[in-house]
Design a protein around this nucleic acid. Structure first.
Lengths: 347, 347
DNA sequence: TTGTAAGCGTTATCAT
DNA sequence: ATGATAACGCTTACAA
């Protein structure tokens, strides 16, 4: 098929410049060019050559082929961020925190969304590994997370953030759920509430589980351990509504409800409103997370502030150390603080 | 270093199974195994062999190395989704729409977040291409988007969604901004408003630009073309507040304000409130997008409903056709509808 | 139907 | 300081 010039101006799919192209132009061997281009081995090449190669490469618009690089080195300079729910506004700040440190180190981050499905989680983790990510920040971990444990065991650096896997072989950055719940219950107790209910989070998440545990312990300690509890299946408004309905059916006399997070709390307040009950006049409600947008939604929610961005930063820090095979990477628990607003009032 | 068994049980980094490993086990050549595993060329291998290979591969937990596959075939079965703002809740439904069709076709999607920075956008697009994505769904396109145009020109399949690039070489799925704005202005006019202001979106986005154009045209046609206009630099609450302050300074007599999207509208209402003005009693306000959460924020916002999930589905459909090199991939404009709620009232 | 071998674009290990 | 060469794991003509 002898064609003088078969390129239609349209689809000028100009072939990507490779190392060989650069080598030909500068009249050197590809290996020399490779060395000149790699900051680490640049020292083993003459200054004159380094300069010439660098100039030619940038002039020609050379961009290394990451596939080839990855195949050869088994590194991709890419990390994955696994989110349980892309629509939950507490995660963007975490993502920003993670990216702020990883980008500075030359890593690109790909975000994936499990929609709280373990099957999707497993699939997506596989996908990420197939694409050769060097590490994973996991914000969608469950307490027993076979998929996360498996890849961690295989030697893939994984750090969970916000939630943790009970098996401590996966380092984590979490918020002090226990302390947060203690502060919330103390606050309600001080307001005179003696019949306090709890809309718990999904029990396969560490947050849901530990907040429920802390709630029970605090109430027990104060002698009001008989408050009603409803366990949600997901951190959504819908589940908040459903659980609150169940709670009220079971025990109409509650004067306060501790929700395991803000989303659930919003659902709780909706359920209250649907029954003609008001918050906080009839029932006090608390959340957890202090998510964005809360300031626009009445009543201003009393909640537990967590430092989302900082958690992301910390998680990325751990991941970096893991990826560098450093020793003694310790999990961290970040402090939280109670934000008293208008959804809680005297009993 | 003669070690009988140097593997510490700890770091049992069991080497990844390769095609060769499978080939050895079944006693066949790698090429035969490769053919047996590829549904397309499986026909050229005996049924018995196919079965044996498939069994062995799954028993051994074989997972193909995408890097090698990609290096060889120049395909990665991966697509990128570029978002302008991961914290904006209108994008999750779009992402879900995109994923719903791409996943069914075997593609994994990686989400990246530009934070509205053209520099980040350029960097992230490069990152995605370096990692060998087969196509890009671009929700962060600007009207003149050098980076998007460049990769599109290079032959990378790109579809923009929600926003469009003016240069039509990048196919798009957008909402009918013009119609939406016409409906909004007609609604306000019918309510008796004659002095209508506009808080416009960033003029480097097609949404901001075309909504402003449509606003001006509609007002002109009705003889109230002298309403004040403030142009925002980003679709955020903060910018909404700032622009509304400017608008009121410039022209305190407006009785209605059309915001270019819901985020801006929320800021507008905040600015109003800060001055002791009420919505809708003193000033009517409208938004655009009908984003999630709006139902919880008072007053219920009159806005333009766009079908976010559908837009994602449509965009993914176009992208698939592009990736298959099909002809005649046509951009689409989706219909919108006015949602009249309580943020608008008689003048 | 199966095997052979080349090659995708790199980096790393030699030798020069 | 630079060049030759092998190898990473896979696909795909081509040969048998």
């Amino acid at each position: 098929m002898p064609s003088i010039c078969s390129e239609p101006a349209e689809a000028m799919q100009k072939k990507r410049i490779t190392l060989r192209d650069v080598a030909e132009v500068v009249g050197l061997h590809v290996s020399t060019v490779s060395r000149a281009l790699d900051p680490n081995s640049r020292s083993s090449v003459s200054g004159e050559v380094a300069a010439r190669v660098l100039a030619a490469a940038s002039a020609m618009g050379y961009r290394p082929n990451r596939m080839a690089y990855g195949l050869r080195t088994n590194r991709s300079m890419t990390t994955g961020i696994v989110l349980p729910d892309i629509a939950n506004v507490i995660f963007p700040p975490i993502v920003r925190g993670v990216e702020s440190v990883l980008e500075a180190e030359g890593y690109a981050s790909f975000i994936v969304n499990t929609d709280n499905s373990p099957r999707r989680e497993e699939r997506l983790l596989e996908t990420l590994l197939d694409r050769g990510v060097d590490g994973v920040v996991h914000a969608a971990a469950t307490r027993e997370d076979p998929a996360a444990l498996e890849i961690s065991r295989q030697g893939v650096p994984v750090v969970s953030v916000n939630r943790r896997v009970e098996d401590t072989s996966v380092p984590f950055v979490v918020n002090d759920d226990e302390s947060g719940l203690r502060q919330v219950v103390a606050h309600l107790w001080d307001l005179g509430h003696r019949r306090i209910g709890h809309v718990a989070g999904p029990q396969d998440t560490s947050t849901g589980f530990h907040r429920l545990e802390a709630f029970a312990r605090c109430c027990e300690a104060r002698g009001c351990g008989d408050g009603p509890i409803a366990v949600s299946k997901a951190y959504t408004r819908e589940e908040g509504r459903r659980c609150m309905d169940a709670l009220l059916g079971q025990s109409p006399s509650v004067t306060a409800v501790v929700a395991a997070n803000d989303m659930l709390a919003l659902g709780v307040i909706e359920a209250l409103r649907a029954r003609g009950l008001r918050c906080p006049e009839d029932v006090s409600v608390t959340g957890f997370n202090d998510m964005p947008f809360l300031d626009l939604i009445p009543p201003p929610l009393t909640t537990v502030r967590i430092e989302q961005f900082d958690a992301g930063v910390a998680a990325a820090g751990l991941l970096l150390r893991l990826m560098r095979h450093e020793e003694g990477v310790e999990s961290v628990t970040l402090p939280v603080s109670l934000r008293i607003r208008e959804s809680t009032a005297a009993a």
